[in-house]
Every structure is written in C-alpha cells, then in structure tokens.
C-alpha cells in the first residue's frame, strides 16, 4: 500500500527489485514496516519504533510528498488490519483489542510527526551549513575575519601566569 503512493511506473519497480542497493527505497520500506508491525504487536517501547520509522520517513520527507502524504502510511496499517482480520474481529468480538491496537497506531502517528519534523529540520540545517561554510571561506579569504588562534590563547595564558 505504501509503495502504491508512488506513480504506477515506479511502484512496480519498488515492489519487484529485491536488491537492497539497487532499490533502497522499496527495500527500506518493506523491511522497516515489518519491524514496525512486530514492535506494535508486542506493544514495545517507542524508542525502537522511532528508529524504524526514522528510516522510512527520512526517505519520504525529501520526496515529492506533502507532509500529510509523507506520514499517512501509518494509518494504512489500520486499513490493513481491518481488511485482513475484519472477519475474525467481528466473529470473536475483538473490538476492545482492535481499539487498543489502533490506539497504538495513533501514538505511532505522533512519533511519525516528530520524526518528520526532525528530518525537515535536518534538511534546512544542512542547507544553512553549506551556505555558512561558503560565506566563511569567502570572509577568511578576504581577510575580514581574524580568528582567535590557539597560539594566541597560549600567549595570553602565559602572560597572565607571569603577572600572577
């Protein structure tokens, strides 16, 4: 389902190519979504979940998606469970369990929101760092910055010591 959020010509490639280096997007998503599902089923801690989510969201945060589209795949899990286990849930009256499970998915969505923001902030941070480095080199070249050198600090300390 997640892979179908990509254009049809691309999603078939993302599904079929199994080499993790030839198809990092498809393979990361498939691998990590499995891990996420496992963690969810066992109701484990959010830290591990956040690591798994990070790998998927890192990719979708810089692809051609709106913020909502980038993290909407979390809710596909609800569809998947209802679709696959709908009959059983009705027959065995497992509505409370379903609610509990969906509650975990909701929590996951909040973690996803954090992760998405972290990725976007990282992109901007990288952009700023790149521009800053360039400007800094230019200023240094133009002799407009006189940095305090280690050597200078040593001399200063020596002077202070000799005074004291």
């Amino acid at each position: 389902m997640i892979l179908e959020t990509y254009p049809p010509d691309a999603s078939s490639f993302l599904k079929q190519e199994k080499n993790q280096f030839a198809n990092p997007v498809g393979n990361t998503i498939l691998q990590e979504i499995e891990d996420i599902y496992e963690e969810l089923l066992h109701g484990r801690d959010s830290e591990k979940l956040s690591d798994f989510l990070d790998r998927i969201i890192k990719i979708r945060a810089i692809q051609d998606f709106s913020p909502a589209q980038a993290v909407a795949f979390i809710f596909h899990l609800k569809n998947a469970v209802r679709e696959e286990l709908g009959g059983e849930i009705r027959n065995d009256q497992l509505f409370e369990e379903l609610l509990e499970f969906e509650h975990r998915i909701d929590k996951l969505a909040l973690i996803a929101f954090n992760t998405y923001m972290k990725c976007r902030e990282k992109v901007y941070e990288i952009r700023v760092a790149e521009v800053k480095n360039r400007v800094f080199s230019l200023l240094k070249r133009a002799d407009m910055i006189g940095e305090i050198s280690e050597q200078e600090l040593d001399i200063r300390e020596e002077n202070i010591d000799s005074v004291v």
Binding site: P7, D9, A10, L14, A22, P24, V25, Q63
Partner: peptide
C-alpha cells in the same frame, strides 16, 4: 529515479 520514484527520471 531510484531516490525519487519519479518515472520521468528513468
């Protein structure tokens, strides 16, 4: 293409 999934990058 691999990174974006945009078919016009094939």
């Amino acid at each position: 293409f691999i990174g974006s999934g945009d078919p016009k990058n094939m």
